[in-house]
């Protein structure tokens, strides 16, 4: 995939920043405004999907290698499970909102409030964004018909 014309490339290189920022906003303000981890994660993934449609696969692979993407996926899932277990450790029950109840009550309608809910939103956003981009990536690999492995740089012939 060589990418599209210069017009598409220019416009998408400007727009991708805005889409990424909007995704970050939805994830971080998920406990205050509509949205949350899942929707924001999909927006984050779609900014990279736009980049990949406009510039081609090789360009995106320099920016966000496949190995890094799978690591981000695992980090998101691990962080969400750890938040749940920390609730068990600090407040006595799984998924207890220990930050809000004990350490950092915060003030409603402020960015730093609601204890573990923003942290869970960030973990879910990371997980969903990385895994949806992985879905898109693996489908376009399958479409090309050329094989790649996930531990070596994509497109490189093995053996």
């Amino acid at each position: 995939m060589r990418g599209m014309t210069v017009i598409v490339k220019t416009v998408s290189s400007w727009v991708k920043v805005l889409i990424f920022l909007y995704g970050v906003y939805i994830v971080v303000f998920g406990h205050l405004t509509p949205g949350g981890g899942f929707a924001g994660g999909v927006v984050l993934a779609s900014s990279y999907v736009l980049l990949m449609l406009a510039f081609g696969r090789e360009f995106v692979e320099q920016d966000l290698p496949l190995a890094l993407d799978s690591k981000l996926d695992c980090i998101g899932a691990f962080a969400f499970a750890m938040i749940a277990i920390l609730g068990l450790v600090f407040a006595g029950s799984f998924f207890a909102n220990f930050l809000y109840q004990k350490y950092l009550p915060g003030e409603p309608l402020r960015l730093i409030s609601a204890g573990t809910i923003p942290l869970s939103n960030i973990a879910i956003g990371l997980k969903v964004g990385a895994s949806l981009f992985l879905v898109f990536f693996s489908l376009s690999i399958c479409r090309r018909g050329k094989g790649v492995t996930f531990d070596s740089p994509a497109g490189q012939e093995q053996e």
Partner: peptide
């Protein structure tokens, strides 16, 4: 919970 968004 302290979260203004009830869905969250």
């Amino acid at each position: 919970t302290g979260a203004a968004n009830l869905v969250a």
